[in-house]
Amino acid sequence: MANWNDPQPRQTGFGASPSLNGEAVTRSTYDMGLRRHMLSIYNYMASGVLLSGIVALLFAQSGFAAQIMTGGGALAWLIILSPLAFVFAMSFGANRFSTGALRAMFWGFATVMGLSLSTIFLVYTQASIALTFFATAAAFAGLSLVGYTTKKDLSGMGTFLIMGVIGLLVAMVINMFVGSTVMQLAISAIGVLIFAGLTAYDTQRLKLMYHQVAGTEFAGKAVVLGALSLYLDFINMFQFLLAFLGQRD
Rank of each mutant, 00 (worst) to 15 (best):
V55W: 09
I54Y: 01
S116M: 15
R27V: 11
G226M: 07
S91G: 08
L193Y: 00
A46Y: 01
G197P: 09
T136S: 14
V123T: 14
S17E: 15
L241Y: 05
A138K: 00
L206W: 01
K152V: 07
Y201S: 03
H37M: 04
L122N: 07
W107E: 04
I187Q: 04
I162K: 08
K152E: 00
A137Q: 00
L20G: 01
T26D: 13
T29D: 15
E23D: 10
P18Y: 02
L102F: 05
I120D: 05
L228D: 09
V25I: 14
M113K: 14
L50H: 01
V25R: 05
W77N: 14
F218T: 04
A89S: 13
F177G: 11
G93K: 05
P9C: 08
L75A: 15
A65I: 05
P18M: 06
S52A: 15
F97W: 08
F195K: 00
F88T: 10
A65R: 07
T199K: 00
T119W: 04
M237G: 05
A89Y: 10
I79D: 03
S188C: 09
G73N: 12
K152R: 11
D6V: 01
S116W: 08
L161R: 02
W77I: 12
T216L: 06
M113F: 15
Y124S: 08
D249H: 08
S28F: 06
V87F: 13
L81D: 11
A74P: 02
G158T: 15
Y210A: 05
T149H: 11
L102A: 07
V192W: 01
H211T: 08
V87N: 10
A110H: 12
A56L: 13
S155I: 02
L117A: 15
L81F: 15
I54M: 08
L122P: 07
L58A: 14
S62L: 03
A60G: 10
E23P: 00
G215L: 04
I129D: 02
A56I: 07
F240E: 12
N43I: 13
V165L: 14
Q204T: 03
S40D: 10
G215Y: 02
I174L: 15
S62D: 06
A135P: 01
M176S: 14
L169F: 14
A135T: 08
G48R: 02
A94C: 10
M105R: 00
S98P: 06
Q204Y: 02
L102Y: 01
S52E: 02
M69Y: 04
K221I: 06
F195I: 02
D233G: 11
I162T: 15
E217L: 09
D233T: 07
G100Y: 04
T29W: 10
V223C: 10
V192I: 12
L241V: 09
L169G: 14
